[in-house]
Write a protein that binds this DNA or RNA. Structure first.
Lengths: 241, 241
DNA sequence: AGATTTTGTGCGGGTTCCCGCAAGTTGCGT
DNA sequence: ACGCAACTTGCGGGAACCCGCACAAAATCT
């Protein structure tokens, strides 16, 4: 009747998920397991109607990459992301690839069994999106830009994190040099990095560009997997020139 | 007879460890559990003779921070680190704090039950160090500096990752400005970052300083927790001035 | 449509960074 | 002790970055 595909690298978590799925969805007769994104993509292709619950942070090929190719092939696939962390980097990565009107979910591993059960049923049966509170909070902030970052600011953040020069960024994004520097100013302001002008002796000065990247990391605006993705996109762009 | 303290934030992994410990060490009569580094420190203090197996990557207070304070109080405590990753950043972090002649271990979560059992017995009964192969490899490279980084290179890597200027680094490490820049040159060379001198048109130029940090991240020379620690040390130093 | 807020560009100058050249210092082996 | 390697420091210049001031273009509001 219903097939569910589990993509999760940790064996303990995988078997826990398996049990949870069977308990929450009696109408589900088959549960398939994959231990990383690559295998996950393959199994998703082979079992056309599979609904998916998967981890982010696997290797090789993490959950976001896998989701992107899966959704590209079948945009109506329902995916529940089940992750340890609610980094803004993940949230942005996902909301960038979720297809129009697709049903998906994001629940944290720290959630109760009940929350997980509810999410499974809502998404797979009711086609409703279920986003964990904490994750929800981040989404609001990003969009409402009360204290959040616009896409263009985020874009430039990624570019300096990759180590590009202003000039290179300008070429890549089709902007003038000055515009790039302008955006950098905005970014520095929002990240609250600046020279702590120790007026008398030269005080603990920061290299704003490098400092911004660090602060973004500490605030989980960036994380390893977002860097990895960005790096891949960059080298792709470098090929095409 | 013997007490073992488990410090691990994931409930599934925690109960798995609990079972593994009981199975591997019949001479152990009490197993205590803590769900983060802070609680771990407290329980270690209260149960003086406890042997410890713990995760890195917890919050608040990760395994390295917890180990440092525990070893500071009782340097003969035996600790087995049980982690998902073998980042060089972790390996360096640990080997910096392990006391003279202390017995400790580092096994990956992906290791077999048998490996874990063996490690538990070797460390807690025989007082022998047990380091997983992959982790071992990193240690060699760091020290033998065949392709590894000396401490001073690593130090300056951390400093630019924090976003300090050359001048600030010079003050912090008591060096001249030029020396700092010299070390940066070495670092760039070892990380293989350089200007891809596109002789005709200005080619994909990099800001070496920022690029070096990114490359270090992708190579797992740095990770979130190492940045976190470095940031704490920095603000401490800024206080003392 | 007109006003108001964004967002993109140009110019200019003060800093910081990247790095070649060269000389002094320290450490280590044989 | 001598020599060779590795590390530190100074000087100098060209490039890149940080950023204030000023003005066009585009998007948004009323």
């Amino acid at each position: 009747m219903m097939k569910v595909l589990i993509v999760e690298d940790d064996p303990l978590h995988r078997s826990y998920l398996n049990e949870a799925v069977r308990a929450a969805l009696p109408e589900c007769d088959t549960v398939i397991e994959a231990e990383n994104g690559g295998v996950g993509e393959k199994l998703a292709r082979e079992n056309k109607s599979a609904h998916i619950v998967m981890d982010l942070q696997m290797s090789p090929r993490n959950g976001i990459e896998a989701a992107r190719t899966i959704w590209k092939e079948r945009p109506d696939t329902r995916i529940l992301f089940w992750s340890n962390y609610a980094d803004e980097a993940y949230v942005r990565g996902i909301s960038r690839i979720v297809p129009e009107g697709a049903a998906y979910g994001y629940v944290l591993k720290s959630a109760s069994d009940d929350r997980l059960r509810l999410a499974l049923r809502s998404i797979f049966i009711e086609s409703q999106c279920v986003i964990d509170r904490e994750v929800r909070g981040l989404q609001q902030k990003s969009l409402g830009h009360a204290n959040g970052f616009t896409d263009s600011e985020y874009e430039i953040l990624v570019d300096i994190a990759l180590g590009l020069t202003d000039r290179a960024i300008a070429r890549r994004r089709n902007l003038s040099l000055r515009s790039v520097q302008n955006r950098l100013q905005q970014l520095y302001e929002k990240l609250e990095v600046y020279q702590p002008v120790g007026e008398d002796s030269e005080e603990g000065r920061f290299n704003l560009r490098a400092r911004a990247v660090t602060v973004a990391f500490l605030r989980k605006l960036l994380n390893y997997s977002s860097l990895e993705r960005a790096e891949a996109e960059l080298s792709e762009w470098l090929q095409a020139r």
